[in-house]
């Protein structure tokens, strides 16, 4: 049974239709890679799922509960966000907080967890992403790869049912991409449910179990990741894969 399904989501910015009737299903433990050229709507899709953008139509079924995008209360948004987590392309760390405070903020402030308990979890999460020696560093004192790993630790701390990754490695220098992908691979192996918008074909091929290829606001093709790369069906998919492969 799917943990999260999206039915016919639509979104326009002005007269530009960014998402046209997109539907997806996510089961527990799925690692789904969403691929597609820039402007294909994949980031907007992810942002709508966490209500950072308001979709114009469609609905979400999450843990058996139905939420029409156009008619969802603030309280429900808050509830859904408390069960999910988001990792941003530009990390979006709280600049006035240390790495540890970034991770514990959501626990202490939003979930009213005692500080000691939150710090224990925060340290454990930072250890997990390999930042045991950076608890008290501010974001400005960390490299991009380290900042993104703090971002992932922050996402993990709230024990979410699913983590949305919005191009988590696109802002990184090439030599820093590996350390972030390693952490994501580790999470996938541990069974974390992940929806990952990415340009990393290697990740899609080797880590994700399912691939969605989007273009111009629609899903062009989706399949298990092995089938997707070994036997792409659509011309646009083939062109995209060979184009990206050539670049890397």
């Amino acid at each position: 049974m799917s943990m999260l399904s999206i039915h016919n989501i639509k979104k326009s910015f002005g007269t530009t239709e960014v998402l046209k009737d997109v539907s997806i299903n996510v089961s527990k433990g799925d690692v789904i890679a969403i691929l597609g050229p820039s402007g294909s709507g994949k980031t907007t899709l992810l942002r709508c799922l966490n209500f950072l953008e308001t979709a114009d139509g469609g609905e979400m079924v999450f843990d058996g509960e139905r939420f029409p995008f156009q008619n969802v209360s603030k309280k429900d948004i808050h509830r859904i966000r408390n069960k999910t987590a988001f990792v941003f392309q530009n990390y979006n760390l709280f600049q006035n907080k240390t790495a540890l405070q970034n991770v514990t903020e959501g626990l202490i402030v939003a979930r009213r967890m005692p500080k000691e308990q939150a710090e224990e979890i925060g340290k454990a999460m930072l250890d997990k992403v390999g930042l045991s020696d950076r608890y008290h560093h501010y974001p400005s004192q960390l490299s991009g790869g380290q900042q993104q790993r703090v971002g992932i630790a922050r996402a993990l701390a709230t024990n979410p049912e699913i983590i949305y990754f919005d191009e988590p490695t696109s802002a990184l220098d090439p030599e820093l991409i590996g350390e972030v992908l390693d952490v994501m691979r580790q999470l996938a192996n541990e069974g974390m449910t992940m929806l990952v918008v990415t340009h990393e074909l290697g990740f899609a091929k080797n880590v994700s179990n399912h691939v969605i290829f989007m273009d111009s606001g629609v899903i062009v093709e989706e399949n298990s990741s092995r089938e997707f790369f070994e036997h792409p069906q659509e011309e646009r998919t083939k062109a995209f894969i060979s184009h990206i492969d050539r670049k890397s």
Binding site: N50, F51, L52, H78, R81, N82, T84, A85, F86, F88, N90, N92, L93, F94, Q95, N96, K97, E105, G106, V109, A110, R111, G151, R154, A155, A157, T158
Partner: peptide, 27 residues
């Protein structure tokens, strides 16, 4: 102050008031 931090605050479950008071205003 970069709007991304506000979005990140929402995503970890904070309210607008909490984000303003703890993240945006101090900066």
């Amino acid at each position: 102050i970069d709007k991304g931090q506000i979005e990140a605050g929402y995503c970890v479950g904070m309210t607008y008031t909490q984000i303003m008071a703890r993240i945006v205003l101090p900066q």
